[in-house]
Design a protein around this nucleic acid. Structure first.
Length: 743
DNA sequence: GAGCACTGC
């Protein structure tokens, strides 16, 4: 390796080093026999045949765009080519992935290919888990982690080259990194950047990096025959069952993968298929399933396998041996409305890129067939080319804060590939201002600097500071951790919802969902201490609590504690407040830290209808909440969501007296909407009431004043019809009826 | 009285 010169190596040099019987990276340790077996198959990959061409491109350009389909070997080989070429730099090579699982998997594979122990020359770094050392020269990491490193070092100065993989997915983190790397390359001429992407939609990235060199790698995939429906159907579940039935009964062996939008659809279809075919191994696959259940899809089976999946199977999990794909053409998409600050999910048609990706799952090991449960015309005219980038899809407060802490003052003019809508940006600024993280000029405050570095949403810093004042910092940290897990800690499996609700009652606090969550977490922790490890699963099962989620809560909580103590100098001992007023302290803390997320009950309405104070929107309380049938006047809420009806989720009853001294609620400072339409009387009167304890009658306002809008009850009639139907046979169409045409 | 996906620090 001593003879190699940075950015001047040749494929021949590198290959002769690889062919040696001793390991050039490991001070001349002998290679294992497994190494040579792996080397032989690596050399056959399409990308290996063009190693010299790649190096020529790499040497002549600072930014390189590599495009290639799955199966080209780019994720494992390109970083190794670069590792040899950058060896003399003495710095690290980073390669990012959007997901944790892929990061660890590809690092493990690459370490094996280079015949080094994982964590030494080749390592990885993901949240909660680091396998890297001083020796590490090639580091696989999640894009989120590199981003958080970049917040402390805009120049990426530990790296000679940064490789961004899966850039076509356009995750929020990848987009931010592309922008930061573009700037870093102009400051550090010795920094190399490689953007790796699937071939589709690469033009956008190309025009963002005008001077960049491009390098294409042919893929190694088998042809997939596509069949479309000649007539569209809304009954995609039964249509899918018919197609699976046809494949199973009439077609050659090979496993089947069926894509459906929701876990509900999946469970229903699985139960029908299981009843009908004893000689078919039917396996559900979606992210909320336990790891063990997800792992079952890889187990050997004596029968043909039929995997029924959401789009986890599109990107996160790849399975070989699939020959038939059945694609409903639907997915669940999150929709965020910045004006309402409300999120919801919708069932939508997928993109053309997703359809291609799903079909490709059939051709990984041999030629395959894909049945699309939509017409060719639908595909061509209704499907958008590719999913919109993540930066256009959500709330951006934490990203704006991150850029501010990095020293970018006017984030509104920041050079993004796709700049977010100005209104989203403006909402983010307003929220940050309300939280006290930026001042009226848009300059970051000292509080904002701390909030930007937290491993949870920055809004929690206010809760931590308020919690410290009120002696319940520990509880706020617990709640922050609970709010950042991807799955709810309370499990309510559809067949046992009623039983789950009863089991959850032992944790319920009548005035607060937040308190109820804390009760469940604390019960879990004491069960962990007293029970043996084996029975904790059973305890969670019996209590209808999600063990995986609770485990993650504890890990996030520990990470938060560490970062609060280290970075923020929270040296004061962190302990819970324990007295008769315990509940009230916590509720007061929530009220004072999430004052911009409080709502007021409509005084006359019989149903529980609330109006949010900040924006003046109307919503109900989510039926799962302990407060759904209470008549509490003031509440704070954690989420404003919609599933047809707008709901406030995870709510806590508060006393308005706790709020009246906050600037936010001073009469003149009440926020107004752009058209000046904010309705103050309700809030003002209710606050006045708290201040003066006046006679209630005087303060009542008319129903009209509330401007309650009728909220249409969207019933998914089709869904309910499908789900209650037990006489399946009647509903099934014959395969011939479906009239599939081959393209 | 009902939800509905997937990531990251």
């Amino acid at each position: 390796m001593e003879d190699l010169q940075r950015n001047q190596t040749t494929a021949q040099q590198a290959e002769s080093l690889e062919d040696w019987e001793v390991n050039a990276l490991r001070d001349h340790e002998l290679h294992s026999s497994k190494y040579f077996r792996l080397l032989e198959s690596r050399r056959k990959l399409p990308v290996s045949l063009r190693r010299q061409e790649f190096l020529d491109t790499y040497h002549n350009s600072q930014i390189i765009l590599v495009s290639g389909e799955t199966g080209s070997g780019k994720t494992t080989q390109i970083p190794q080519f670069i590792l040899f070429d950058e060896w003399a730099s003495g710095k690290k090579v980073a390669c990012t992935q959007p997901r944790r699982l892929a990061t660890t998997a590809v690092a493990t594979r690459t370490a094996a290919e280079l015949d080094v122990p994982l964590g030494e020359e080749v390592g990885y770094s993901v949240r909660f888990e680091r396998k890297s050392s001083k020796l590490t020269r090639l580091k696989y990491m999640t894009d989120g982690l590199l981003l958080s490193e970049a917040s402390k070092d805009r120049d990426f100065s530990a790296y000679s080259c940064v490789i961004l993989d899966e850039a076509h997915e356009r995750t929020l983190n990848t987009d931010l990194l592309m922008a930061l790397l573009k700037m870093a390359t102009s400051r550090r001429s010795c920094l190399k950047v490689v953007i790796m992407s699937a071939t589709l939609n690469i033009e956008k990235i190309q025009s963002y990096f005008p001077g960049a060199a491009t390098f294409e790698i042919p893929g190694k995939v088998h042809p997939v025959e596509i069949h479309y429906l000649s007539d569209s159907t809304p009954r995609y579940c039964y249509c899918a069952i018919s197609v699976v039935q046809h494949i199973h009964q009439n077609m050659d062996e090979g496993d089947i993968m069926l894509f459906l939008p929701t876990s509900g659809d999946i469970e229903m279809v699985c139960s029908i298929l299981r009843k009908k075919y004893k000689n078919l191994t039917v396996l559900p696959l979606y992210s909320a399933l336990s790891r063990a259940k997800q792992q079952e899809i890889f187990d050997d089976s004596e029968y043909r396998k039929c995997i029924v999946a959401t789009n986890v199977a599109e990107t996160s999990i790849t399975i070989d041996g699939i020959v038939y794909v059945v694609d409903s053409g639907l997915e669940i998409r999150p929709v965020y409305n910045p004006r309402l600050r409300m999120s919801s999910v919708l069932t939508c048609p997928i993109s053309k890129a997703s359809a291609k990706q799903r079909a490709g799952r059939a051709g990984r090991t041999q030629p395959g067939i894909c049945f699309r449960l939509y017409t060719e015309e639908t595909h061509n005219t209704c499907f958008i080319p590719s999913a919109p980038p993540g930066i256009l899809e959500g709330e951006l407060a934490s990203q704006i804060l991150l850029l501010k802490v990095m020293g970018f003052q006017s984030v509104g003019t920041f050079d993004f590939i796709d700049p977010p809508h100005p209104e989203v940006y403006l909402c983010g600024l307003q929220d940050l201002c309300a939280m006290g993280y930026i001042d009226d000029e848009g300059t970051i405050t000292s509080k904002g600097r701390i909030a930007a570095r937290l491993p949870v949403h920055p809004k929690w810093l206010n809760a931590f500071m308020e919690g410290q004042k009120n002696g319940c910092l520990r509880e706020m940290i617990d709640l922050a951790a609970i709010s950042s897990t991807q799955h709810p800690i309370f499990s309510r499996p559809p067949p046992a919802r009623f039983a789950a609700d009863i089991a959850h009652r032992r944790f319920a606090c009548p005035l607060s969902d937040h308190m109820s969550q804390l009760n469940a977490l604390h019960a879990y922790e004491s069960a962990m201490k007293t029970d043996k490890r084996l029975s904790i699963s059973q305890w969670c099962f019996d209590s209808f609590l999600n063990r995986r989620a609770l485990g993650e809560v504890v890990r996030i909580r520990d990470q938060l504690l560490a970062s609060l103590q280290q970075e923020l100098a929270y040296t004061k001992e962190i302990c819970g407040f324990e007295d008769a007023e315990y509940d009230a302290h916590i509720r007061k803390t929530l009220a004072r830290s999430f004052f911009y997320q409080c709502a007021l009950k409509h005084p006359h309405s019989h149903a529980t209808i609330y109006k949010t104070v900040h924006e003046g929107h109307t919503a109900g309380i989510h039926p799962e909440s302990v407060l759904s049938r209470e008549k509490q006047e003031w509440i704070v809420y954690s989420e404003f969501v919609s599933s047809g009806i707008p709901y406030l989720q995870t709510v806590t009853a508060v006393d308005p007296a706790w709020l009246i001294d906050l600037d936010f609620f001073q009469d003149d400072s009440l926020p107004k909407t752009a058209d000046g339409g904010f309705k103050q009387p309700l809030v003002k009167k209710s606050l006045d009431k708290a201040r003066k304890k006046k006679d209630e009658e005087e303060d009542l306002i008319s129903f009209e004043e509330l401007e309650l809008k009728a909220t249409p009850l969207v019933k998914k009639s089709l869904d309910t019809v499908w789900k209650k139907s037990d006489d399946v046979e009647e509903d099934l169409m014959s395969f011939e009826e479906l009239d599939l045409k081959v393209i």
